[in-house]
Amino acid sequence: MRNTPDIKEFHRPKTVTEAIGLLSQQDNGTVLIAGGTDLLPRRQSGRTGVTKNKLVDISGLGLNYIRETQDAFLIGAATDINTLASSPVFKTSPYTAIIEAALAHSTLTLRNRATLGGNLCNASPHADLALPLLVLDAVLVMEGPHGQKTINLDNFFIGPHCTVLEPSEILTEIRIPRMPEKSGANFIKLTRQHTAIDMAVVNAATCLSIKNGICISARIALGSVGPHPFRAKKAEAFMENKTLVKNTLQTAALFQEAAGLAAKEASPIDDIRATAAYRKEMIPVLLQQSLGKSLERSLS
């Protein structure tokens, strides 16, 4: 607490190129800052980022936008969580799961500062926004000294607070492809109290696409129960091609089985918010609810 080193340099570049230039020149004492809601507390508590004392602020790069194209939604990485939460663009199914996760992310004041890109790049095991984006097959655009590249969000996280992003790269945009008609998604979060202020004990998102009563695509993502947010692919595969009819015992049994498979894919740990055993037990509880909601939304 007392040993947080001072910030030595602070840069606020105007363009992405300039920012990449700064990142490339500097030694590994450099770190990007957007909203600062993860970085600053982590510095203060002596965890990650404490040795990095040269900050490159990316709030001036024009990366705060939400755009629609014919086949995707494009979100600037520096878009704050509240802008996401209040965006009319995401008010239709299945994109409402983004709004649900955004509202569950934190309090209003934090949401005004925290950014979508920050939530992803911080790569916390319980990052709320990662979950709807995982089930919506989001693609990340990254820029670096050698140009632009894209990667599926599913391949982005590699460990707690660890991603494939190189030190000289910047996440600039998140692309969400348009989903098939009759898709429904949901985000769900269990906390110690019933408010958005807490970090998740378990969080999850699901997305189901239905055609002629058959599940043509299923996505199930889990947070807080592994080293990073991840997709439960065995459970997803199990759901595909199944006939789903809402509020029937058969479908409930399918959801139960899928949720049980997903729980097996998780590797939670004990921490001060909950034990591993409790987390594991909660995964099926949450997923069954979430799958039920997603199915309902896909049909409405």
């Binding site: 109290q193 019933h194 970090m199 001060i272 918010r273």
Partner: peptide
């Protein structure tokens, strides 16, 4: 919700993030 969580003499929740006081909304 309230209670210091301890391990080997360390306090694991020395702040309001994890020492969970009821807020007005709770």
């Amino acid at each position: 919700t309230e209670g210091l969580i301890r391990k080997d003499g360390h306090i694991l929740n020395p702040g309001f993030t994890d020492y969970r006081l009821l807020r007005s909304c709770d």
